[in-house]
């Protein structure tokens, strides 16, 4: 999977979320839109999911 700064600054880790839910570890926000680009370096799984990595 691509990565950059690993601390949420650079957006170098953007990966499409194919399906499922992830949680933004900084804000607690849940992302679950299919195809949404997520910052994998600060996201955790919030259930089964698939990434287009």
């Amino acid at each position: 999977m691509p990565y950059g700064c690993r601390r949420g600054i650079c957006f170098g880790c953007l990966t499409p979320l194919t399906y499922g839910r992830v949680r933004d570890l900084r804000t607690g926000e849940i992302h679950d839109r299919a195809g949404q680009m997520i910052q994998t370096c600060l996201s955790a799984a919030a259930g089964p999911l698939a990434l287009d990595a």
């Binding site: 950059g4 700064c5 601390r7 600054i9 650079c10 957006f11 170098g12």
Partner: peptide, 11 residues
Amino acid sequence: WKHTHNHLHHT
């Protein structure tokens, strides 16, 4: 540019 700037320079 995103590599040298966003990642390296801003970190």
